[in-house]
């Protein structure tokens, strides 16, 4: 009985997880193309004269992505043998890109976002260690500059 539940969760995790991931990637790629005109750079200093900057404000975007049952089991197996945890790579990649996109979307009228940083945190982990919901949050933040025309 336990085994049947386990296998069903595994199948559900795999199919639902792959579907969600494919859809998310399609959406990410489409929006990245659309927002390509807005550069987001990690530079702290840009050589734009003070007078040319009309406004500067902090913008941020965050994304929370959860792991599915299949990925978690795959990672648990990897935990035994060691090596690259490939199943979590897409998770982090999606979270980073999604948070960058949301940051850009929140500064759609800006000309450039400078000093961009990305931070990652795991959330939903209970102190008891049992029955935790493993998901991660990525926050991207930076300074959006709007220049004089």
């Amino acid at each position: 009985m336990d085994l049947i539940i386990f296998l069903m969760l595994l199948a559900l995790g795999f199919f639902a997880g792959s579907y969600a991931e494919k859809r998310h990637y399609r959406s990410i790629e489409r929006r990245e193309k659309a927002l390509l005109r807005l550069p987001a750079v990690t530079l702290k200093k840009v050589d734009i004269p003070q007078g040319k900057v009309r406004s500067a404000r902090m913008v941020h975007g965050s994304a929370v992505i959860s792991v599915d049952y299949f990925k978690r089991m795959l990672a648990a197996l990897r935990n035994i043998f060691g090596g690259k945890v490939k199943s979590y790579e897409t998770l982090l990649d999606r979270a980073r890109r999604e948070s960058l996109l949301r940051m850009k979307e929140s500064a759609a009228d800006a000309d450039i976002i400078v000093n961009v940083r990305i931070e990652t945190a795991t959330i939903g982990r209970s102190s008891r260690g049992k029955q935790r919901i493993s998901c991660l949050e990525t926050v991207a933040y930076g300074t959006a500059l709007t220049l004089e025309k």
Partner: peptide, 8 residues
């Protein structure tokens, strides 16, 4: 950032 290959 993502290693290609089938997770299955």
């Amino acid at each position: 950032n993502v290693t290609p290959g089938s997770p299955l």
